[in-house]
Design a protein around this nucleic acid. Structure first.
Lengths: 205, 205
DNA sequence: AGGCAAACTTGCACATTGGGCAACAAGTAA
DNA sequence: TTACTTGTTGCCCAATGTGCAAGTTTGCCT
């Protein structure tokens, strides 16, 4: 998607490097166990550059959920056959299936765990989720017949991604020592959770 | 809701006073036209106390959407007749109707406008929305027959509140000078937007 | 009522942070 | 190549976040 000039690639690379370093440090030392200086040293950039990309540690840490692991430049296209004439709902379903790989789910689990101890992280996690939603919407518009009904698409994406957080809660069941045991059933696989959720969305709650 | 001891009331009052001062200053001078010191001077507290309640200006500004105007202590109860046996969906519908008064919508409009110029505000707006969602869920559980199916409630609330943001977009149509004109229809009243949205949620997208 | 315990507020100190500015370097287009 | 745009960095300083300890208010129990 998007321009993807060499310049943009390098920008993505630096952002990814910084986010990765921040995320790793957060896992190793905890959110307040390191400072921005540590991040930029690990990533090989200056403190000033960090500020050009992120407004604070938290934002960088959360951003890890938006970046891909290995080859950064590999386009994560959906590759849906237009002839299938999928409904917008099904497109989003596939989009979520494709994006939320085991790798991403792992990262999200770490993020959620961190977020429990450090509530300041939560707003930025939500913000990242919203960016994912925006990306999905953009892609969805590419598969929809015509550009009309942007409002419907927008609404649909909102409802779907609003459900993603509860789905992740149910999938990951992040728990800290000292948390109360609940009587709810155990963690449910993401795929299965998606199934039932899209069932509700398709035929009504 | 909740304890509401005298202590809690005072805490809410200080939080509200600080948030209000921050919000007003943001409207008057823009998000970066004032500092925390200005906020606490207006509200009559110390800088240290501000830090006890909020982690940054942005958080305080966004928080205004959670507080009520006049009488802070007036409980914003829903007052739903249990005999009505409303579906969870309808309870949330009423909850949104009751909470999103013209006053709140006005505040939200200002917040969205600020957020356009200062993206750092966005994560905290999302965070506030999630708090509202948590409150609604809590209240919903009070009206639901039994405590089971917490997962369903959680999922439902997620989908509903996920749709709230697009609804607000459609309702408020926040625009800055220099924004591109779009060909989408004009702003739609909140009530009406809710109607159609809950229609989708009830009978499927 | 009296008094103890819990917890909110504040000042202080200090490391950390954000961001304007200007110089330099790297990518882009002609 | 040359000119232009844009990312990176250092410098600098106002602003911020937070632990700690003292002072004050609230809650609760006898």
């Amino acid at each position: 998607m998007r321009p993807h000039s060499l310049r943009d690639l390098k920008k993505e690379a630096t952002a990814h490097a910084l986010a990765k370093a921040a995320f790793e440090l957060a896992l190793e030392k905890g959110l307040d166990g390191f400072v921005v200086e540590d991040v930029v040293q690990r990533a090989g950039y200056s403190r000033r550059t960090f500020a050009n990309y992120f407004s604070c540690k938290e934002e960088a840490v959360a951003m890890i959920a938006m970046t891909f692991d290995g080859n950064v430049d590999e386009d994560q296209e959906l590759h849906i056959d237009l002839a299938e004439r999928l409904s917008p709902l099904d497109v989003l379903h596939r989009w979520l299936q494709a994006r939320f790989t085991a790798d991403l789910l792992g990262k999200v689990r770490e993020l959620f765990t961190l977020s429990r101890r450090h509530p300041t992280l939560e707003p930025f996690i939500l913000s990242v989720l919203k960016r994912l939603q925006a990306g999905a919407e953009e892609e969805l518009r590419r598969y929809s017949a015509d550009g009309r009904d942007i409002v419907y698409t927008h609404l649909l994406a909102g409802a779907v991604f609003g459900a993603v957080l509860p789905i992740l809660d149910g999938t990951l069941k992040v728990r800290l020592p000292g948390d109360p045991e609940d009587r709810a059933p155990d963690a449910i696989p993401f795929e299965q959770h998606l199934e039932t959720t899209f069932g509700y969305l398709k035929s009504g709650f």
